[in-house]
Amino acid sequence: MVIVSIADLKTVVGEDVLVTYALGSCVGICLRDDVNKVSGLAHIMLPWSKTASEDEQNMRRFADTGITELMQQMVDQGAKSRNITAKLAGGAQMFGVASAAFNIGERNIQAVQKVLETYKIPVAASDLGGNYARTIYFHTVDGKLEVRSATKPTIFI
């Protein structure tokens, strides 16, 4: 089991489980090249890196730079970008609908989808939005994404 912390990313080759905990408004991006058995997971917090401050240390926080780095690492490990498909989870609005100003989740979802579109990566499945946190287990053996939450039943997508 490989744990990916907030604003970080990891890749694995072969059979393993990539885990990231407590996705709220953050989005978990699971990429997999089924042919070369290379998989990766990124846990992004914010949509676009152009909002970063000058001394920003961690470009993995952003959807655009995070996905780009994840793709690069996967290609370095033998993945071919034309084989890669994506599964997504997260992008919730914590603290309910009353807090429209906080709706970063929706903006994260849009950014992730846009970036994946530019790389021509199809989204095979997703579990997005809502107002609750998700923990995800990406089973790279078959590409199933297990989504757990505090109050909803566990689903596999």
Partner: peptide, 25 residues
């Protein structure tokens, strides 16, 4: 402001201020 309340995983709750105040590191 009025208080917003939620009961959920602490990781997701703390991400809310982290996201809004990303500029303070």
């Amino acid at each position: 402001s009025v208080p917003y309340v939620t009961t959920d995983m602490v990781g997701a709750i703390l991400a809310v201020p982290a996201v809004e105040f990303a500029e303070i590191g």
